[in-house]
Nucleic acid binder design. Sequence first.
DNA 1: CCTTGACCTTCCAGTGACTGGAATCATTAT
DNA 2: ATAATGATTCCAGTCACTGGAAGGTCAAGG
Lengths: 130, 130
Amino acid sequence: MNIGDAARLSGLPPKTIRYYEDISLVVPARSDNGYRAYSANDVHKLQFVQRARGLGFPIEHCRTLLSLYEDQNRASADVKAIAAEHLTEIEAKIEELKALRKTLKHLVDNCHGDDRPSCPIIDGLAGPDH
Amino acid sequence: MNIGDAARLSGLPPKTIRYYEDISLVVPARSDNGYRAYSANDVHKLQFVQRARGLGFPIEHCRTLLSLYEDQNRASADVKAIAAEHLTEIEAKIEELKALRKTLKHLVDNCHGDDRPSCPIIDGLAGPDH
DNA sequence: CCTTGACCTTCCAGTGACTGGAATCATTAT
DNA sequence: ATAATGATTCCAGTCACTGGAAGGTCAAGG
């Protein structure tokens, strides 16, 4: 199957799929005419990566997860370790964003937002001593 | 003042400060020897950008905020609009990450994490029909 | 006067994960 | 025969830096 069909089945744009070949993540065979020829298994792998990326796994994690996906003798502990690490990162990111939101919300709430120049947001960004 | 002092006072690495000149965000004067010469006002601007970036404002927002910071006749409504937009984006990002966390946590919690190959995380990524 | 070391300069390239666009080739439909 | 669609490669751009190389400048110590 050509790249267009693989794209439709995996939900990934052709550009992205070519990129995945570039970085040796999912490498298809080639037809006689030079077109990429995706097998059903290739498409499964693309779908797998699409889901993993959708969960925010970085490409290198996807690469490891793919090799574990293909390895019938993998230990589930290996997979769990990667996922748990990623989960920790996501939780840290959430906390970071919550702190940002708090600060920003405080600034926004205290800005009257009219046509006068006085503005607590600007003052907050300028720092305590200005 | 040279770039090293500006870096210490603003909390930004010299590389980043040079980059900010490259993109015309904070452009210092030059000394006779060709060194960048940062005024106290330049350093204030760098500090301003450092705080705004720390709150996750993208550079182009920082550029606008900086021009509003310098404009004594600005309307606080203009500032508030930018900050409120950014706040909305942060809130959306938080919700997105929470959804990710939920899915991922579900997968991790259901993986026994031993040396057996069976793994709900891999199965979840492989999709419903595999 | 010379050297050492800290600091500064520019330029080039790489990051992550694509995305856009141009020029060209292959296949299919009319 | 031609037009549309879809494929190919390659180059460049995104965002916000970051690293490194090669070289210029300056103050202090011997």
